[in-house]
Design a protein around this nucleic acid. Structure first.
Lengths: 112, 112
DNA sequence: AAGAATTTACTCTACAGTGTAGAAATGCCA
DNA sequence: TGGCATTTCTACACTGTAGAGTAAATTCTT
């Protein structure tokens, strides 16, 4: 009964961003969060495509923001994790943790 | 100059398996390692395709095993991480860690 | 106050790369 | 030769990625 399908790496990053941004989880902001935290350039198209696909899969749910934008601009589309989404995320993180168990970042430094 | 291309999720699992198996890192064994650790069914084709692609990208290097097989069977192809490979792996793990920083597995339990 | 300009954010399209499966082929030993 | 362990091949679905284009809201202009 738990979801069986695995998440891609970018999907995990997006899900994590949505989770930590809470009520502020909309496309542009998600992109910014990923770029500043991971320091990896991320196109806006990649973010939206991924958000939409995950919504189709039922991992995310969305609603149009209600607040008044500061200085104009199109309304935000706020994303939230569904039960399925948080479950998938947890499973993916666990899989990676188990494979990584006991390995420290430093262990990878010296390799030829 | 460090590699810029990102690793997929399964690629990370395979790289981690190769790293921890050391001299015993060959296809069938890698598959087993991933299945038993993450408890996720993994086809042998997926493993080999990924190993080969990563070798092409220069993340892995391979050599034919020299030992005598126990009861017959084709010789093993042993894989090892290259500098590029360990570097990519470290970078991917870091990106995930940064996005995940401060979030505990348990934080994902209660979500609706 | 109407229309234009500005701001912010989202949609669409297309293609390369990764994930996945399983049947078939290969090399080794007895 | 026959059985076994392991790898190779082929094919297709899904994910990653980019960026130009479109849309909705506010503010400026006259």
């Amino acid at each position: 009964m738990p979801p069986r399908d695995n998440l891609g790496e970018f999907e995990q990053l997006v899900l994590l961003a949505v989770f930590r941004l809470k009520a502020d989880a909309y496309g542009m902001r998600v992109r910014q969060e990923i770029e500043t935290r991971t320091n990896r350039p991320t196109s806006i198209g990649a973010v939206y495509a991924t958000l939409d696909r995950m919504e189709s899969k039922g991992l995310l749910r969305s609603e149009v923001g209600e607040s008044t934008p500061a200085r104009g601009g199109r309304p935000k589309k706020i994303f939230t994790l569904t039960a399925l989404g948080s479950d998938s995320l947890r499973r993916s993180m666990e899989a990676l943790s188990k494979m990584r168990h006991g390995i420290k970042m430093g262990d990878l430094e010296w390799l030829v």
